[in-house]
Simulated assay, not measured.
Amino acid sequence: MDAKGLLTGLPWWVKWVAIPVIAIVVFGGLIASLVGFLVGLLFKVLLFVALVGGVIYLVRRFTSASSSSRGDW
């Protein structure tokens, strides 16, 4: 008996309400921790990109300002 044969005689609310609710109760902590990990990882990646971009901007700004104000060395 396959999975579809197992669920054929059951009412619709068992398939579409009871089984998903049981899955969320059983695996809810795992799902929440995975979502939290992914959101945290995305935040850290975006923070890293912003900080690297800021450093590159500052280095280019100060090196161009210092090279234009050197005069005739």
Rank of each mutant, 00 (worst) to 15 (best):
V55F: 04
A32T: 02
W16V: 15
V59F: 06
R70F: 06
A23T: 14
V14R: 08
G54T: 05
G5T: 13
V26D: 07
D2R: 09
R70V: 05
W16C: 15
V45T: 01
L42G: 00
R60C: 07
L34E: 03
M1V: 07
A32H: 00
L47R: 02
L47K: 03
V39H: 01
L42F: 03
V52K: 08
L58F: 07
V45Y: 00
G28M: 04
L38I: 01
L46Y: 09
G28C: 04
L30R: 03
I56R: 12
W12K: 15
G5A: 13
K4C: 14
Y57H: 09
V45E: 00
I56C: 11
S67Y: 15
V25E: 10
Y57W: 10
I19L: 12
V52P: 03
S64G: 09
S33R: 01
A23K: 15
P20L: 01
L7N: 12
V35P: 01
V17A: 15
I56F: 11
V21Y: 10
L10Y: 13
W16T: 15
S66I: 09
L46Q: 10
T8I: 05
V55E: 03
R60L: 08
W73R: 13
I19D: 09
K44D: 06
K15C: 13
L46F: 10
W73Q: 13
M1R: 08
I56T: 11
I31W: 00
I24G: 10
L51W: 03
V39F: 03
W73Y: 13
V35N: 05
R61Y: 05
W13V: 09
A65Q: 14
L47D: 03
D72C: 09
M1D: 08
L38Y: 02
I24S: 12
G9S: 11
F43L: 05
V26A: 10
L41P: 00
G28W: 02
A50E: 07
A3I: 12
S69D: 07
L34C: 04
G71D: 07
I24Q: 11
A18V: 13
V39G: 03
S68F: 12
V52W: 06
S68D: 15
G28H: 02
T63M: 08
T8V: 05
S67D: 14
A32C: 03
S66H: 10
G5R: 13
